[in-house]
Design a binder for these strands. Structure first.
Lengths: 231, 231
DNA sequence: CTCAAGAAACAATCATGTTTGTTTTTGATG
DNA sequence: CATCAAAAACAAACATGATTGTTTCTTGAG
């Protein structure tokens, strides 16, 4: 797909009535088609990888002709950018959802984030993140989103663990630990560098470690050993 | 580069006098050129990513014409395969070297592996591993190497920590923890998902965790807190 | 009737594998 | 010892296939 510079400010032909307000049926259909294309792009990235995600691929996946697709996005790059934004918002939404519905204890949150990482959005994002290493244009788009993601992650966690804020340094460390370990596991499972049978014990280990780092929880929490995990 | 099936058993024109024994000057130069090409391939993967590593790229990087290159490797795929094998052996060599020269305490080994992950070989291997997710041919080559790597990793560690073998389950867990965390950190730093300032504290944290898991070391080892790391 | 949605055809670019040509090494022979 | 032919190293040109952006064309809604 290659993602080159896009003439800013002129998407192929954005309907003039923007936003969620009352639209004509045309602009509504247009929005639907745009969404369908963005979804198809993400599916393609997951299915064949970012590098092999071509415009014909995406068009086929969306059930449209390439011409129709370029009518909505004028450019392969524009499509990729839109997909990135959508992915980013997807991740943030999933965050908020998890924080709202789940139990707010360590185990539940670790498991919630782990489940999060099993979803296609993570695969797609990692594909993009790695491609950005050698693609300056991609990196320029992705970097601010990575920063925002990390900030939201931490902000969410701060809200969830108010009692932890006494030792902010240790808290940040625990957050980085969780992120690193879970994402590292996800990638290692993805690439076959780690056996899946290791996942459960590792999750337990991480939970123990987090509890051990928490100044408050370390007293009340059970000092679970790494081996009494249920199957 | 794309890596398709390669007619087995017929490299472009392997010199008939194989091995390291006495060769004619031609076959020696041939071996040199092959090595130069393999090196160029790895450099390309690191520089522009696996997806954008094309045959002209590699030839240019090696200072050869594409024709000359295809004389030695007949195929882009053959080159990739050779590069993979070379990378694998590089990683194993680095392993053995570290195990021979370094101090055999937890800190030294953690740092040694961390340094290992900063080298280009790791970047290249991760590029390949991720590409393999969507490339069946690549996966078929990489998978056995991944298995062997893990086995060597563990075997090396077993030899280094004989006192640990009482609780094999916990030992395996500690190994998986180290690998996951260090590789996860390396990738997260690579993709900008993690601030570099977090590296040092995280290394310390990992070392503490490993020590805490060791039945023997946990008594003798200093119960270092996560914050008394030197800068 | 006018404009947007959607489709199809087109030229340009690029990587790949193949084929053909040129130089250098090697070792065999007169 | 000089020479020559075969093979290998290296280079260049070619044809093919795929992707990209552009342009032209049809259809349906407002």
């Amino acid at each position: 797909m290659a993602l080159a510079a896009v003439r800013s400010g002129s998407p192929a032909r954005q309907p003039r009535e923007r936003g969620q307000g009352g639209q004509t049926q045309q602009s509504l259909k247009s929005a639907q088609t745009r969404a369908r294309l963005i979804d198809a792009t993400i599916r393609c990235i997951v299915k064949v990888g970012y590098a092999n995600t071509t415009t014909p691929q995406v068009a086929a996946e969306a059930g449209l002709s390439r011409g129709a697709m370029l009518h909505h996005f004028e450019n392969g790059s524009a499509l990729i950018k839109a997909a990135i934004v959508e992915l980013h918002e997807k991740r943030l939404r999933a965050f908020r959802r998890a924080a709202d519905t789940e139990n707010h204890d360590v185990d539940a949150l670790v498991r919630a984030y782990w489940r999060q990482l099993q979803k296609p959005a993570f695969v797609a994002f990692h594909e993009l993140a790695l491609a950005a290493r050698t693609h300056a244009d991609l990196a320029k788009i992705l970097q601010p989103l990575q920063v925002e993601y990390r900030e939201r992650f931490n902000a969410q966690a701060v809200a969830l663990f108010p009692e932890w804020q006494g030792d902010r340094e240790r808290f940040d460390l625990a957050m980085a630990l969780s992120q690193t370990m879970l994402e590292g596991m996800a990638i290692n499972v993805l690439t076959g560098a780690m056996a899946e049978s290791m996942v459960e014990p590792m999750l337990g280990l991480l939970e123990d470690q987090i509890r051990a780092m928490n100044p408050k929880l370390s007293k009340g929490g059970r000092a679970k050993s790494a081996k009494d995990q249920p199957d």
